[in-house]
Amino acid sequence: MLLSTPTSPHAHTPLDTSGLMRLVILATLPGVAALTWFFGWGTIVNIAFASLIALACEAFALYLRGRRVMFYLRDCSALVTAILLGIALPPGSPWWIIAVGIVFAILIAKQLYGGMGYNPFNPAMAGYVVLLISFPLEMTRWLSPLGTFEGSVPGLMEALQLCFGGGFDAHTMATTLDVFKQGAGLMVADVWQQNPQFGRWGGLGWEWVNIGFLAGGCYLLHRGVFTWHAPMSMLIALTAMAAVFYDGGSSASGGSPLMHLLSGATMLGAFFIITDPVSSAVSTRGRLIYGALAGVLVYVIRRWGNYPDAVAFAVLIVNFAAPFIDHYTMPRTYGHNRGGSD
């Protein structure tokens, strides 16, 4: 009898990294569905094209680095980056925007730092911020959501044309967060009345997109892909900040907590971006601090920053802080003093 002698433990959970990534991809479905419903096929086209480029970039980098291409492609991490960036980009973005973002995210933010597991920044957010700073016009041209103009959300062909042709003339409109940023001097209630895209809580369409990502996030929590600490901490911090500065809806108000929770990339950020394990803090306590910091920064940037796209910037900033947070939140090891000195 020929016996193999691996070391203990001999048992292993069935969950593996590729499986985790596939779960994350699966969990984006409700949010993507909401985006598609309200903003047309642009998001799907974004995701599809981004995925294609991402896989190509990843394979190219792995080939250059002399790694096993298929083995590492199968971990699906490039796909996750592509999908998250595809979601974050305005639906119907031109193809070169998507390409530049993905190339930066995969080649520079991820592979140049050593690939999967070694990137200090969230690749999707790094790509997004590069695009935002480089091409502010294209990056802030969000299509009008369904319901503001008659039958106006682009179908698949129109979305493809938007992406690759560039000729299609679509309606665009400022997002809720944009309006809040620009619309000084109006009471919150007035802003709401004057802008048809505001919907009920967080912007027409946006509230459903956020609820979709919230649902996906809850599914991932349930499956144990990540713990509640970072997302809950971020949402609570954001709510608290918004509540403190709401001031009853005056013209100087920063918007209601509900609006902040349900607009922009709040839920996407809370459940799909800051939960990226590679670039976040590692301990439970660290993740609480990490999430809270992200939540506060999201509000600060939305309210007083130059860009309304606060989540991306907030995430990059807390990525910077993660090693620092880790250093100060080392858990107390069994058998060591509560003072932590020995």
């Binding site: 292993h12 985790l20 590679v278 301990s283 439970t284 107390r332």
Partner: peptide, 26 residues
């Protein structure tokens, strides 16, 4: 029943190990 170990992939710092550690190590 106890399949041989799958090939090692990159650590993604998911922290599931830290949650499993009974000695509160990282």
């Amino acid at each position: 029943e106890l399949p041989p170990a799958a090939p090692q992939q990159a650590c993604i710092r998911c922290g599931i190990c830290a949650e499993a550690c009974p000695a509160s190590l990282l």
